[in-house]
């Protein structure tokens, strides 16, 4: 919950509020991009790596930083936890339909 996890912005879905789809180790989920809107506009985030905390992108990072952060999270066992939490939450919402 506190550490966040890196993911890549693969689609911009809304300008207001700023949101998009982020690929986190193969899991695609909707992420709020309000805190990482670049000066050049939201479109500039496409393909960029961001640090995602509980569904919100909080920082734009470079690819190397993303890879190292992911490796560190994996060693702490936190990467799996985050990804599982994403899956579980998505499944729960499906069920709630």
């Amino acid at each position: 919950m506190c550490l966040g996890i890196p993911g890549r912005v693969v689609e911009i879905t809304s300008e207001d509020p700023p949101a998009g789809i982020v690929d986190v180790s193969g899991v695609r989920r909707k992420v709020d991009l309000s805190c990482t809107v670049p000066a050049e506009g939201l479109a500039a985030l496409m393909g960029k790596w961001v640090l995602v905390h509980v569904g919100f992108a909080m920082s734009v990072i470079d690819e190397d930083e993303a890879a190292r952060t992911l490796a560190a999270l994996e060693e702490l066992g936190e990467a799996m936890e985050e990804i599982e939490a994403m899956h579980r939450s998505a499944a729960m919402l499906e069920e709630a339909e």
Binding site: V54, G55, F56, E82, A85, S89, A90, M92, L93, A96
Partner: peptide, 17 residues
């Protein structure tokens, strides 16, 4: 009690219920 990954998922639960 539901486990969610994000507060946004809780918001979605509210929309759907």
């Amino acid at each position: 009690v539901r486990m969610v990954y994000s507060p946004l998922d809780a918001l979605e639960l509210a929309r759907r219920n």
